[in-house]
Amino acid sequence: MYTPKHFSVSERQELLRFMQEHGFAQLVSNQGDRPEANHLPFLVSQDGERLLCHLARQNPQLEQIDGQQVLVIFSGPHAYISPRWYNSPGVPTWNFQAVHVYGTARTFTDDARLTSVVNQLSEKYEAGAASPWQPEYPQKMLRAIVGVEIEITEIQGKYKLSQNRPTEDHQKMIEALNAEGETSMAEAIKQWSTP
Protein backbone atom coordinates (compact mmCIF):
# COMPACT_ATOMS: atom_id res chain seq x y z
CA MET A 1 0.00 0.00 0.00
CA TYR A 2 1.40 3.40 -0.94
CA THR A 3 1.90 5.21 2.36
CA PRO A 4 3.63 8.59 2.56
CA LYS A 5 5.50 8.99 5.84
CA HIS A 6 3.05 11.44 7.44
CA PHE A 7 0.16 8.95 6.95
CA SER A 8 2.03 5.86 8.16
CA VAL A 9 1.02 4.11 11.39
CA SER A 10 3.41 1.41 12.56
CA GLU A 11 2.71 1.00 16.30
CA ARG A 12 1.62 -2.65 16.48
CA GLN A 13 -0.78 -2.28 19.42
CA GLU A 14 -2.64 0.49 17.59
CA LEU A 15 -2.86 -1.60 14.41
CA LEU A 16 -4.17 -4.62 16.36
CA ARG A 17 -6.72 -2.40 18.12
CA PHE A 18 -7.88 -1.07 14.75
CA MET A 19 -8.19 -4.60 13.31
CA GLN A 20 -10.26 -5.72 16.29
CA GLU A 21 -12.51 -2.67 16.10
CA HIS A 22 -12.99 -2.94 12.32
CA GLY A 23 -13.08 -6.73 12.07
CA PHE A 24 -15.16 -7.00 8.88
CA ALA A 25 -12.45 -7.14 6.23
CA GLN A 26 -11.57 -8.36 2.74
CA LEU A 27 -9.64 -11.58 2.23
CA VAL A 28 -7.67 -11.45 -1.04
CA SER A 29 -5.93 -14.51 -2.52
CA ASN A 30 -4.98 -15.86 -5.94
CA GLN A 31 -7.47 -18.06 -7.74
CA GLY A 32 -5.76 -19.30 -10.87
CA ASP A 33 -4.59 -16.30 -12.85
CA ARG A 34 -6.67 -13.64 -11.09
CA PRO A 35 -7.22 -12.27 -7.59
CA GLU A 36 -10.24 -13.44 -5.57
CA ALA A 37 -11.72 -11.45 -2.67
CA ASN A 38 -14.38 -12.14 -0.06
CA HIS A 39 -15.76 -9.92 2.69
CA LEU A 40 -15.66 -11.66 6.07
CA PRO A 41 -15.61 -11.05 9.82
CA PHE A 42 -12.17 -11.76 11.31
CA LEU A 43 -10.84 -12.49 14.76
CA VAL A 44 -7.38 -11.39 15.89
CA SER A 45 -5.69 -14.02 18.07
CA GLN A 46 -4.89 -13.02 21.65
CA ASP A 47 -1.17 -12.93 20.91
CA GLY A 48 -1.77 -10.76 17.80
CA GLU A 49 0.10 -13.21 15.56
CA ARG A 50 -2.82 -14.73 13.63
CA LEU A 51 -6.17 -13.92 12.03
CA LEU A 52 -9.07 -16.37 12.01
CA CYS A 53 -12.19 -16.55 9.85
CA HIS A 54 -14.30 -19.11 8.05
CA LEU A 55 -15.65 -19.56 4.54
CA ALA A 56 -18.55 -21.56 3.17
CA ARG A 57 -17.28 -24.96 2.04
CA GLN A 58 -18.60 -24.24 -1.50
CA ASN A 59 -16.63 -20.95 -1.74
CA PRO A 60 -14.19 -21.27 -4.70
CA GLN A 61 -11.62 -19.21 -2.79
CA LEU A 62 -10.92 -22.34 -0.73
CA GLU A 63 -9.72 -24.31 -3.75
CA GLN A 64 -6.20 -22.83 -3.78
CA ILE A 65 -5.86 -20.75 -0.60
CA ASP A 66 -4.13 -23.30 1.64
CA GLY A 67 -0.45 -22.33 1.95
CA GLN A 68 -0.88 -19.10 -0.05
CA GLN A 69 0.40 -15.67 0.86
CA VAL A 70 -2.82 -13.67 1.27
CA LEU A 71 -3.82 -10.07 1.94
CA VAL A 72 -6.50 -9.02 4.41
CA ILE A 73 -7.73 -5.41 4.13
CA PHE A 74 -9.31 -3.75 7.17
CA SER A 75 -11.10 -0.45 6.53
CA GLY A 76 -12.23 2.19 8.97
CA PRO A 77 -14.03 5.49 8.53
CA HIS A 78 -13.59 7.36 5.26
CA ALA A 79 -14.97 10.60 3.85
CA TYR A 80 -14.64 13.13 1.06
CA ILE A 81 -12.72 16.25 2.09
CA SER A 82 -13.67 19.45 0.26
CA PRO A 83 -11.18 22.27 -0.34
CA ARG A 84 -14.03 24.58 0.80
CA TRP A 85 -13.03 23.53 4.31
CA TYR A 86 -9.43 24.75 3.98
CA ASN A 87 -8.09 28.12 5.07
CA SER A 88 -5.35 27.88 2.44
CA PRO A 89 -5.41 26.61 -1.17
CA GLY A 90 -5.78 22.87 -1.72
CA VAL A 91 -7.49 20.19 -3.75
CA PRO A 92 -10.31 17.72 -3.04
CA THR A 93 -9.22 14.49 -1.39
CA TRP A 94 -10.51 11.45 0.45
CA ASN A 95 -9.50 10.75 4.03
CA PHE A 96 -9.51 7.18 5.33
CA GLN A 97 -8.03 4.65 7.70
CA ALA A 98 -6.87 1.24 6.47
CA VAL A 99 -4.71 -1.62 7.67
CA HIS A 100 -3.28 -4.25 5.32
CA VAL A 101 -2.21 -7.61 6.73
CA TYR A 102 -0.09 -10.11 4.82
CA GLY A 103 0.29 -13.69 5.91
CA THR A 104 0.19 -17.37 5.07
CA ALA A 105 -3.25 -18.99 5.03
CA ARG A 106 -3.94 -22.48 6.37
CA THR A 107 -7.35 -24.12 6.27
CA PHE A 108 -8.82 -26.31 9.02
CA THR A 109 -11.96 -28.41 9.47
CA ASP A 110 -11.54 -29.62 13.05
CA ASP A 111 -14.92 -29.33 14.82
CA ALA A 112 -13.44 -27.98 18.05
CA ARG A 113 -11.53 -25.17 16.29
CA LEU A 114 -14.49 -24.27 14.06
CA THR A 115 -16.79 -24.20 17.09
CA SER A 116 -14.37 -21.89 18.87
CA VAL A 117 -14.20 -19.47 15.92
CA VAL A 118 -17.99 -19.38 15.43
CA ASN A 119 -18.59 -18.94 19.16
CA GLN A 120 -16.02 -16.14 19.49
CA LEU A 121 -17.48 -14.28 16.50
CA SER A 122 -20.98 -14.66 17.91
CA GLU A 123 -19.91 -13.43 21.34
CA LYS A 124 -18.11 -10.44 19.83
CA TYR A 125 -20.99 -9.26 17.67
CA GLU A 126 -23.82 -10.19 20.05
CA ALA A 127 -22.14 -8.42 23.00
CA GLY A 128 -24.18 -5.22 22.73
CA ALA A 129 -27.57 -6.90 22.31
CA ALA A 130 -30.15 -6.63 25.10
CA SER A 131 -30.61 -10.40 24.97
CA PRO A 132 -27.68 -11.82 23.00
CA TRP A 133 -28.06 -14.98 20.93
CA GLN A 134 -26.31 -17.88 22.56
CA PRO A 135 -24.44 -20.11 20.10
CA GLU A 136 -26.66 -23.12 19.59
CA TYR A 137 -26.56 -25.04 16.34
CA PRO A 138 -26.26 -28.66 15.19
CA GLN A 139 -22.68 -29.87 14.80
CA LYS A 140 -23.50 -30.84 11.19
CA MET A 141 -23.71 -27.13 10.38
CA LEU A 142 -19.97 -26.91 11.04
CA ARG A 143 -19.43 -29.22 8.06
CA ALA A 144 -20.74 -26.43 5.80
CA ILE A 145 -17.77 -24.18 6.64
CA VAL A 146 -13.98 -24.33 6.54
CA GLY A 147 -11.80 -22.35 8.91
CA VAL A 148 -8.90 -20.21 7.74
CA GLU A 149 -5.99 -19.24 9.98
CA ILE A 150 -3.58 -16.62 8.67
CA GLU A 151 -0.15 -16.38 10.25
CA ILE A 152 0.68 -12.67 10.09
CA THR A 153 3.97 -11.82 8.40
CA GLU A 154 3.50 -8.06 7.88
CA ILE A 155 1.09 -5.30 8.91
CA GLN A 156 0.87 -1.94 7.12
CA GLY A 157 -1.17 0.93 8.51
CA LYS A 158 -2.29 4.09 6.75
CA TYR A 159 -4.33 6.79 8.45
CA LYS A 160 -4.76 9.52 5.82
CA LEU A 161 -6.33 12.18 8.03
CA SER A 162 -5.08 15.49 6.64
CA GLN A 163 -1.88 15.40 8.68
CA ASN A 164 -0.23 17.19 5.72
CA ARG A 165 -2.62 20.17 6.03
CA PRO A 166 -1.95 23.21 8.24
CA THR A 167 -3.29 22.83 11.79
CA GLU A 168 -5.78 25.67 11.32
CA ASP A 169 -7.57 23.60 8.61
CA HIS A 170 -8.27 20.70 10.97
CA GLN A 171 -10.91 22.42 13.10
CA LYS A 172 -12.78 23.63 10.03
CA MET A 173 -12.74 20.10 8.57
CA ILE A 174 -13.94 18.61 11.86
CA GLU A 175 -16.86 21.06 12.04
CA ALA A 176 -17.84 20.44 8.40
CA LEU A 177 -17.66 16.65 8.75
CA ASN A 178 -19.75 16.72 11.94
CA ALA A 179 -22.35 18.87 10.16
CA GLU A 180 -22.51 16.28 7.36
CA GLY A 181 -22.92 13.39 9.81
CA GLU A 182 -19.40 12.04 9.23
CA THR A 183 -18.72 11.96 12.96
CA SER A 184 -16.35 8.97 12.89
CA MET A 185 -14.05 10.71 10.41
CA ALA A 186 -14.30 13.98 12.35
CA GLU A 187 -13.24 12.15 15.52
CA ALA A 188 -10.35 10.41 13.72
CA ILE A 189 -9.02 13.73 12.40
CA LYS A 190 -9.37 15.23 15.87
CA GLN A 191 -7.45 12.34 17.41
CA TRP A 192 -4.67 11.95 14.83
CA SER A 193 -4.18 15.32 13.13
CA THR A 194 -4.56 17.99 15.77
CA PRO A 195 -1.95 18.78 18.43
Rank of each mutant, 00 (worst) to 15 (best):
D47H: 08
F108C: 02
P77G: 10
T3Q: 13
R143C: 04
M19C: 11
E11D: 10
V28G: 12
Q31Y: 11
K158T: 15
W94L: 03
Q163T: 07
T183V: 15
V101C: 08
K5I: 00
S88Y: 03
N38E: 10
V101Y: 06
Y102C: 04
G32I: 09
V117D: 15
F18A: 13
E14D: 13
E151C: 01
H170E: 06
S116Y: 08
G103V: 06
L27H: 05
H100D: 05
F7E: 14
W94M: 00
I152Q: 11
A37R: 03
N38C: 09
E175W: 00
N164V: 03
Y137E: 12
E21C: 04
F7P: 14
G23H: 15
Y137I: 04
L15Y: 04
G67D: 04
E154C: 05
R12T: 11
Q171V: 05
E21S: 09
G103R: 02
K5A: 13
A105C: 04
S45K: 06
A188W: 02
W133G: 10
H6I: 15
K140M: 06
M141H: 11
Q163I: 05
N95F: 02
T107S: 08
W94F: 05
E149T: 14
P4Y: 04
Q13H: 10
T167A: 15
H54E: 14
F74P: 00
E180P: 04
R12I: 12
G67E: 08
D33F: 04
G103M: 01
N30V: 10
G32D: 09
M185K: 07
M19L: 06
L71Q: 12
T194N: 01
F7V: 01
P138T: 09
R57G: 02
E180R: 03
K124W: 03
G67Y: 04
L142T: 13
N178W: 01
S131Q: 12
A144C: 02
S88A: 09
P77V: 02
V118R: 11
P92L: 00
G157P: 03
A37H: 05
Q64S: 15
F42A: 10
L52H: 14
A144F: 01
S122D: 10
T115F: 01
T109R: 12
I152F: 05
N95K: 01
A98Y: 05
V44G: 05
L71H: 08
A186D: 01
D111L: 12
Y80L: 01
L114V: 13
G147A: 08
V70E: 09
G128L: 15
Q139H: 12
Q61G: 06
G128W: 08
Q58S: 11
K5E: 15
A129C: 06
Q20C: 10
R17Y: 12
Q31R: 07
V9T: 14
E123S: 12
V99Y: 01
P83F: 00
G181N: 07
V9W: 08
A127P: 10
L177N: 07
I65Y: 11
S116W: 00
P166V: 06
Y159Q: 07
R113A: 14
N87T: 02
F18G: 10
E168K: 11
L114S: 08
A112R: 12
I155G: 00
F108S: 01
H100L: 07
E187R: 01
T167L: 15
